[in-house]
């Protein structure tokens, strides 16, 4: 079927209504609508119960289609942030300001309590805290990735990855607003990132991990409503176990067990290079291994449960 003909088919019908609302009256508009109409080949949707490999194939396709709609995910994530602060005076910069207040207060308090040099401690603390905030929000907001988008999921068929992308981007944008504070702290204390492969590699691995965490907890949170409180209390413990408010070189006994905490290597591969500190190969190895496990787990769960998500939420 030649779909360029379609506007002509529609045209005589629609102009019969002489109300001002009748669309397609203007020739330019019609040409454009034709362009919309021929946008891509005619889609075919063939749905049947998944058997065997179809689970993974469809999950990969979902992910690919989701990333093709990156602009949609980006806009949704950005609008989420804008809406949260709509009507407030500072808007999203409240995130910047509250980070500044927290970092300032905690920096001086802990430096006094632990008796550490502020020049060393404050940059470390500020960067660690916002990194942890990012990780924590990926888990907690990840739990409501799909349950929070019920309206969209039940209204139209779209790749589930779009919702994951939306939450990941929301987290990234929140992080970037707080990161302004850290950048200022780094400038004041003269800390420059290490200029080699480590910083970009660490950041990329981190972003991929954030996506996987959101996906994993999104699926779990859609099925089990207990996920948010359970994960919140686990993250609370991990916050104190992981070197976030304390520097790893503070402890000597038990240092070898630090790598058992998956958060530590993940945080360290971003924090180390960006703060110009050496990251041991064992930490890189652990980070890559934990990330691999995380991706496999998230993808396996998503492939298995993708078709059920609409039924659960």
């Amino acid at each position: 079927m030649n779909r360029i003909e379609r506007p002509e088919q529609i045209h005589p019908e629609t102009v019969t209504g002489d109300s001002p609302a009748a669309p397609l009256q203007d020739a330019g508009a019609r040409a454009l609508r034709a362009e919309i109409g021929v946008n891509g080949p005619e889609p075919v949707m063939d749905l049947r119960p998944e058997r065997g490999l179809a689970h993974s194939v469809h999950a990969i396709k979902d992910t690919r289609d989701g990333f093709r709609l990156f602009r949609l995910g980006w806009t949704l994530g950005w609008l989420d942030i804008k809406l949260r602060y709509r009507g407030s005076m500072l808007g999203p910069f409240w995130m910047t300001l509250s980070t500044a207040i927290m970092v300032g207060a905690m920096g001086f308090l802990y430096a006094a309590l632990f008796n550490i040099n502020l020049r060393v401690y404050l940059p470390f603390l500020s960067f660690s805290l916002i990194l942890w905030g990012y990780l924590n929000s990926a888990v907690s907001e990840g739990c409501s990735t799909f349950t929070g988008s019920v309206g969209l999921i039940h209204a139209l068929r779209m790749p589930f990855s779009v919702h994951v992308l939306r939450v990941t981007i929301r987290g990234l944008l929140t992080f970037l607003h707080s990161a302004a504070v850290v950048a200022i702290v780094f400038v004041i204390f003269g800390i420059a990132p290490r200029l080699n492969w480590e910083a970009p590699a660490g950041v990329l691995l981190w972003l991929a991990d954030m996506y996987a965490i959101t996906l994993l907890f999104g699926v779990l949170g859609a099925r089990f409503r207990d996920m948010p409180p359970v994960s919140a209390s686990v993250m609370q413990i991990l916050f104190f176990v992981t070197p976030i408010i304390w520097k790893p070189d503070l402890i000597f006994i038990g240092r070898q067990y630090l790598l058992l905490d998956p958060c530590y290597p993940l945080v360290e591969i971003v924090r180390g290079p960006l703060m110009n500190q050496e990251v041991r190969p064992s930490i890189w190895l652990a980070a890559v291994a934990y990330s691999g496990l995380l991706w496999v787990a998230a993808f396996a769960l998503f492939s298995r449960m993708r078709t059920r998500l609409a039924y659960w939420v």
Partner: peptide
């Protein structure tokens, strides 16, 4: 099975 051809 559900098979739909065309933009929905």
């Amino acid at each position: 099975q559900v098979l739909v051809q065309g933009r929905i």
